[in-house]
Amino acid sequence: MLYHFSEDPGITRFEPRVLYNQHDEPAKVWAIDAHHAPHYYVPRECPRVCLEAGEDTTEADVEKFFGLSEARRMMVIESGWYERVRTACIYRYSFEPDDFEEFDRNAGYYVAMQTVVPVQVERINDLVGAILQAGIELRFTPSLLPLKEQVLASTVHFSMIRMRNATL
């Protein structure tokens, strides 16, 4: 299955749209694979950095980012978003993958160029619990920007989402 996450519980059809920063690209419906889906267990506009130790991640980077933790996946969110993440609920829309094509394997993104209809909608009430149940260590920090620079210079696999909303 592929997924799309929203704070809107009533979407019956997903129409292709152009992203804010991709005006010269064709309109698309975006979906995410199951492995990367927990990166979206937060309110849509919440900035976050998601890290994973991959086979090609150096031992030094594993130690630097994961330290004494046994976790090999982590999500870092700004402290100012804590209350919204703690109290929000989101909706997971499920899609059959047949209408989608892989867009970015590393990030788990898939796209459809035509309207798609979800096969199921599930409400997720406890976002923090859902992240933790996925085996992802959850951390909060005052600002993501120092972490961003360290991650970009590392060998960890990462996804940086809604960074335009990060605290300076």
Rank of each mutant, 00 (worst) to 15 (best):
V116N: 02
G10W: 01
F5I: 11
A53R: 01
P43L: 14
R72W: 06
R105P: 13
S69P: 08
R92Y: 00
F5P: 02
D98M: 02
E96W: 05
E45C: 08
A27G: 12
R92C: 14
Y20K: 10
G10S: 09
P47D: 05
Q22V: 14
R48E: 04
S69K: 10
E15F: 08
L138D: 01
M113Q: 12
A134H: 13
R48G: 01
G10N: 11
Y82K: 12
R123G: 14
V76H: 00
G54H: 04
E137A: 09
F66S: 07
T12E: 09
D61G: 00
P9N: 10
G54N: 02
V117P: 05
A53V: 03
R17K: 13
R92P: 08
T57V: 05
P118D: 13
S69C: 08
T87S: 13
A130N: 00
R139P: 01
R84H: 04
Q133V: 11
H23M: 15
R86K: 12
R123S: 13
A112S: 10
I77Q: 01
R44S: 08
W30F: 15
D56V: 04
R86F: 02
I131F: 00
M113H: 15
F65R: 01
P43A: 10
V42A: 04
I136S: 00
F14C: 08
H4G: 01
V42C: 05
A134Y: 00
E45S: 07
Y110R: 09
R17V: 12
P16N: 05
